[in-house]
Amino acid sequence: MPDVPSLFYTFHFYLFGLVAMASAVVFVTRRSPVSAAMWLVVVMFSLAALYVMLDAQFIGVIQVLVYAGAIMVVFLFVIMLLNLGHPAELADARGLWWKLAAGAVGLGLVAELFTLVRGATAAPYTLPAGYAAQQVAAEGAIAPVAGPLFHEYLLAFEVTSVVLLAAIVGAVVLGKRRADAR
């Protein structure tokens, strides 16, 4: 992020922000799960663009790879496996009160956001201006993430892979077709 945002920067920042918000609204109002999932992809991409503009290039790439890529594919798999792709068959489970409650929670979150933006954040929780850009210039965008991951938290990182392996083995063992269930 430049110290004084140029018009070009500001324009694109608001553009992606508006696209993200509009797509999010469309996402929650779709009746078809598949098209809702597709709109969620647009939200993810806009957020990724915002991350890149905020000098968090690595998080932006991860956002696209993991959220827009892997997690959305899993969503679509589940939707198609459970055969939820036909909106006509889906009864709207959400009643009026449910919608009102969700709207109230949403308004609460917006209010919280406004208070946080307007109020001054306490010093320990803020970074100096341009800190992220300096970090990227000094170490690159990936090293600050990779360093702790492969030094400080090496053991946790490696154990995570064993946890995932055990989960996959368990799922396959339970999901495999039984030998005697011909």
Partner: peptide, 24 residues
Amino acid sequence: LMIVFLGVELMSLSVYALAGINRR
């Protein structure tokens, strides 16, 4: 605490599957 959590998960995920190992 991170290792505690991962240990709990490795243990639990394996035992969940073991509890249902008799599919009949």
